[in-house]
Design a protein around this nucleic acid. Structure first.
Length: 575
DNA sequence: CGAGCCCGCGCG
DNA sequence: AAAGCGCGCGGGCTCG
């Protein structure tokens, strides 16, 4: 499945090894939609150069696909994976499949849809003809077939690819978002709306309070350097204007200043301008970027979808007759670490309970807060503070888990590669890093050279230490979502559910929007929008999917992945 | 006046 | 002086 230059799509049928089985056609987009709808009866695996560019076309036409293989995303994994390091693909010079995807244009305001695609890309570089996709697919199949433990890579590529389908579906569906509620919320916090560039009443009042407390009537509280100078002039000794540092200072300016910072952030990041840019027909359509983070986590582009502050989640409200199933994997990363390292003691601490509470119950530390900060320290590489002090106790109780994070850190410090459970490997540090390490071992190296090299080595070690945990957790989350999607696939729509309320999206909406579907994903948390009558069944599916994801990654190793799963009409009520 | 940096902070 | 991981985004600010 590739694009040709003339807005035609080339479609070919292949067997398991990528060999052509005869069918080879050029179709217009409309013809392709019909073709895809027909072909879905046989549940083929669609091989796409870039799911994000093609799938929205199908979704807009009401066609949903079950299985896919995304060449661009899978290439990125195989290019770096240690398990396929010997393959032709991994050793070929960089080419078209190593390039960043073309930037899709997200409409910032009403008038166009979010799904406009750029004009077709020109043939990019050498060998970018229509054969290129097929050649690449064969190279990927070969890289997997000849890899160590091909089953893991195969699962990873399938999970990454279904993630691309889900990402497109979620962008298409959008997160239900009530502009009216959002507007009321902003007005209550900031005061009535004012034209862009002006401060709403509440912010203006607070700015006046800040100026009065500092005895300076010209201060712009939005300028950190200016603010810092004014604070120091007023006898407030601080090295920065960070909220957590200001919090500890006793001075009349602190209270209005902290309040100002909070509200100014709300206005600039999720204020009226944001609302008008991103909310269309009471839906938020962020652009998800599967594999957008080196660890395999998703990123988003535009709208800050992965940073929705709790302050505004009250605007996320289910349609009439519908509700949300909001599920969150409890202490996901430590559980992943326990399973990765086969640390049965740590896994046992999390059995049937809050993992941090289990650590306390085992007598390792005194409080849940201590357990949490110690675990985060182990996974992030803390060396000082409370976290650093608690680490030895954690290491005594859970030697296997801590040995694994330490080994990952040492590997990174040497410049070595580490890999996740399913085989996504970390990038190597850049040339500057290598140069600095080399310089520190040469004869004329200064103490400064050595210090610098050591510091950078430790930085990279903290990255690789975290990579194995964050990346494996991202794989669990992909499998979880894939299983949820599979479970939801066969649920009935609104009509069959015996609920007469309107279907979301209005007339002509995609039929899959009339049945339960995923509308949001945030690293270890999902939201399913569902007819209220089906919410219990959805919750059962989501819960079972978590257990299945655990088995897919870790087989029989006895580690639990419990969820907090609630049925709520507003996201604000989720926790 | 735009490009690109830093700062600060939202999320996990 | 160094400092627990990964991101995206907006505002200020500097520089060409």
């Amino acid at each position: 499945m590739t694009r040709t230059g003339a807005d035609l799509l080339r479609v070919r049928a292949l067997d398991d090894r990528g060999a052509s089985t005869g069918l080879d056609r050029l179709l217009s987009e409309a013809e392709f939609r019909d073709f895809a709808a027909d072909s879905e009866q046989h549940q083929p695996r669609w091989v796409f150069a870039d799911t994000a560019r093609l799938y929205p076309l199908l979704l807009a036409g009401g066609v949903r696909l079950k299985r896919a293989h995304d060449l661009r995303l899978c290439h990125a994994i195989l290019r770096l994976a240690e398990a396929s390091a010997h393959s032709a693909l991994a050793n070929a010079p960089a080419g078209r499949w190593d390039q960043a995807p073309p930037v899709a244009v997200a409409a910032p305001t009403t008038g166009t849809t979010l799904f406009d695609l750029e004009p077709d890309e020109p043939a990019a570089g050498e060998g970018a003809g229509p054969e290129d996709g097929l050649t690449e697919f064969k190279a990927q199949l070969d890289a997997v077939r000849t890899a160590a433990e091909p089953g893991r890579l195969r699962l990873l590529l399938a999970a990454e690819s279904v993630g691309a389908l889900i990402a497109a579906e979620m962008q298409f569906a959008g997160l239900p978002w009530q502009s009216a509620i959002h507007d009321r919320l902003l007005t209550a916090e900031l005061g009535p709306r004012v034209p862009a560039g002006l401060r709403p009443e509440r912010l203006e009042d607070l700015a006046a309070g800040i100026r009065a407390a500092l005895g300076d009537h010209t201060i712009n509280p939005d300028s950190p350097p200016e603010l810092l100078r004014a604070l120091n002039r007023a006898g407030v000794t601080t090295a920065s204007t960070r909220a957590w540092e200001l919090q500890r200072i006793d001075h009349p300016v602190i209270e209005p200043l902290l309040r100002y910072k909070k509200l100014a952030r709300l206005l600039s990041n999720n204020g009226w301008y944001w609302m008008e840019s991103w909310i269309i027909n009471d839906r938020f359509h962020p652009e998800y970027l599967p594999g957008g983070v080196v660890t395999g986590r998703w990123a988003t582009r535009g709208g800050g979808a992965l940073q929705l502050p709790r302050q505004v989640r009250g605007a996320v409200v289910a349609d009439p007759g519908w509700t949300f199933v909001v599920a969150d994997a409890a202490q996901l990363e430590p559980r992943i670490l326990a399973a990765l390292s086969h640390d049965t003691a740590m896994a046992t601490a999390g059995r049937g309970t809050d993992l941090y509470a289990g650590i306390v119950a085992s007598g390792v530390v005194e409080t849940r807060a201590h357990a949490k900060v110690a675990m985060l320290g182990a996974m992030y590489g803390a060396t000082s503070g409370e976290s650093g002090r608690l680490l030895p106790r954690l290491a005594r109780a859970y030697p296997r888990a801590l040995a694994l994070t330490e080994a990952a850190a040492r590997a990174g410090e040497r410049g070595d590669v580490v890999s996740t459970r399913l085989g996504r490997s970390s990038p190597r540090p850049g040339a500057a890093w290598q140069d600095d390490q080399g310089r520190a071992t040469e004869a004329g190296a200064t103490a400064g050279d050595e210090r610098r090299a050591r510091s950078q080595a430790r930085d990279w070690g903290r990255f690789t230490r975290n990579f194995i945990v964050q990346g494996s957790a991202a794989e669990w989350a992909l499998c979880w979502m894939a299983e949820i999607r599979k479970g939801l696939w066969d649920l009935p729509g609104i009509a069959e559910a015996g609920n007469a309320s309107g279907e979301p999206g209005g007339p002509g909406a995609n039929p899959f929007l009339a049945a339960p579907h995923l509308v949001f994903f945030l690293h270890d948390e999902v939201i399913v929008h569902t007819p209220a009558a089906l919410a219990d069944r959805v919750a059962t599916i989501v819960t079972a999917a978590a257990a299945t994801a655990g088995r897919l990654l870790f087989g029989d190793f006895p580690v639990d992945f419990p969820l907090t799963c609630v049925i709520v009409d507003s996201y604000a009520d989720a926790k």
